[in-house]
Nucleic acid binder design. Structure first.
Lengths: 332, 332
DNA sequence: TAGTGGAGTGAGCAATTGCGCAGACATGGG
DNA sequence: CCCATGTCTGCGCAATTGCTCACTCCACTA
């Protein structure tokens, strides 16, 4: 009677599984009760799980997109990917992402930490949602120079200052614009003690928070007056799809070589890479390519993003394989 | 924003629960990922379980009545209660119970064990289903004398012999009828070396397997010719509801004092109690009161029973507290 | 303003669990 | 018939987990 035996075995699995998972006996107690060895009980429990007799279900609210997060993590080797709840209105969406980013920040932030801060409309909305339970003695420093419009709330300096204020931390200013007019001017400024100090501090930061910028004519870099429409167009021609703290990358994630880089006051991609925890925030609707590029650069550890971009980036990464020329999806 | 905070907390619980139970990270890994302490992760996981975010379900086939088993265990302080799959036909039902009992026996039986065996129609069907994977050097000995019809398959001796045969074990016979005609005859017989040896062995058994007998006119004791209808009626008058190895008990589980006891060749209730593992088998439709009484006697460690009797016994125990005289609501 | 109670925290330890191992056993092929 | 092969077993260790225990921080009270 093989069928009968099989059924009996299954019944035993159910009994044991019940006793262990529902009645919460230990494996040893179960073993004693059924006159089996403890390892055998463990094996039977494993079998029960494999056979689907035991089902562990985590009730996930619909606004959590853990599937997208998992795919992003594995597709780009991220330490973490967080997809914010979806919103139809771009402003609401940006706020939702920013809120999640702020909460993430609150969790990671600890006394004594140094946080380098980039720019971006998404990052700019983080401070209003940032409200740690208790004061944190952290230091916030811009990871790049600011825009000519001093008070623009997407300015790294403004964001860093606001964050410091919100948690009772320290703010170290970086007295520099994002771009100077010549390499010489840039080198001269970076040589200044005050500027060098801030940049050095940022380079040694424990964490970085940066928006991901695009290369369209309405990108933050353009709106804030850092770059002209013509300059961005030039970058586009060279394959640039987006930037992280002013460092433009192409769709493969490699830095775009251009004269701009010599005029930029900011942490380089290599310097960012050396920071243990680089958190990138993106919530503009037209950004999937920018996100793709920056993720492929291997600089980003944590991505905080809206569902639409998350889906779009995954589609791009899956659908359009690396791109013809250099098929080197720079992972880490 | 208390509502927002609550929702965020719940989201965190879901994330952590997912990471732990679905992705199977360790608590420590989860703690690292979320920048929390390990104990805190544990507390959050507990909370997630308590909040019903995590649901562990054991898919139980409909023929398993784990609920009845649990209730029986707790109502009568049993080490184990096993309810066999239900069958409409009494014969099939008896076989189902016997099969489960045989499987239980196979699990508990180990080399060197001594098993004392009682009588009963239910117990009598056990041997045909008893087929251990490998030979077991166990010893089977009757716990009581036999019936005058030597070959009756419900005879303790027959059952013990068949079990021993089935597993390649040893059978020690008890050369005695269940009841003798006088106390003197009984005492004389019990004094005989061969009988005393078998009874002594049975008293030191590691396990006992016994049917639960009733006190109706069709009870095994009557059918097998051990007792007359008049004798059983006399027992009923004294409150007897059932027996275990010839020891009659009333509805409260106390032994029924009567002249029979002095004529009985069997282990006493006290001797049975001293055996570590007394397994009682019951599957006759009219037996709930008998089961109730024997369970209340505190002799039984393991009950193997059909669903109808299981329900009926629980109803009796819950609904009709101890029972005044000896009301026998014939349920099934 | 100091005191008091309650909730929440991480350290540390004991219990539980997972797992690699060597040996026993059946099975089937040479 | 013997031996290879794979499965199943329990042992013992190392990792993981549950839990107790001070301790802190906050809210409320006298």
């Amino acid at each position: 009677m093989p069928d009968d035996t099989r059924r009996h075995d299954a019944d035993l699995l159910v009994r044991i599984a019940h006793r262990y998972w529902v009645d919460e006996l230990t494996q040893e107690e179960v073993a004693r009760e059924f006159a089996l060895s403890r390892p055998k009980v463990q094996r039977l429990l494993d079998r029960a799980r494999a056979a689907g007799i035991v089902e562990i279900r985590v009730q996930t609210p619909p606004w959590l997109r853990l599937d997208l997060e998992r795919d992003l993590r594995s597709a780009f080797g991220l330490a973490e990917a967080i997809v914010a709840p979806e919103h139809a209105d771009p402003g609401d969406q940006r706020d939702a992402v920013a809120r999640v980013a702020a909460q993430y920040l609150e969790r990671r932030l600890a006394d004594g930490m140094v946080v380098a801060v980039g720019h971006g409309r998404g990052a700019g909305r983080v401070p209003p949602h940032f409200r740690p339970r208790r004061p944190v003695a952290a230091t916030f420093v811009p990871a790049m120079g600011g825009s000519p419009h001093v008070e623009a709330p997407t300015n790294p300096g403004e964001i860093a200052r606001a964050l410091a204020e919100r948690c009772g931390g320290r703010f170290v200013p970086l007295f520099a614009p994002a771009y100077l007019e010549s390499r010489e001017a840039r080198d001269s400024l970076v040589g200044q003690e005050a500027v060098a100090h801030a940049l050095g501090l940022a380079a040694r930061a424990d964490m970085a928070l940066a928006g991901i910028g695009g290369t369209d004519d309405g990108a933050t870099m353009v709106r804030s007056g850092c770059l002209s429409v013509a300059e961005v167009a030039g970058l586009r021609e060279r394959g640039a799809v987006g930037d992280l703290a002013g460092n433009y990358v192409n769709a493969e994630g490699r830095p775009v070589e251009s004269a701009h880089r010599d005029r930029l006051v900011a942490l380089s991609l290599d310097e960012l890479r050396r920071i243990g925890l680089v958190v990138a925030v993106a919530s503009e609707p037209e950004k999937p390519m920018a996100i793709l590029g920056t993720l492929r650069s291997g600089v980003v550890d944590v991505l905080i993003v809206d569902p639409a971009n998350a889906r779009a980036v995954l589609d791009l990464a899956a659908g359009a394989p690396p791109a013809p020329a250099a098929a080197t999806p720079a992972r880490r």
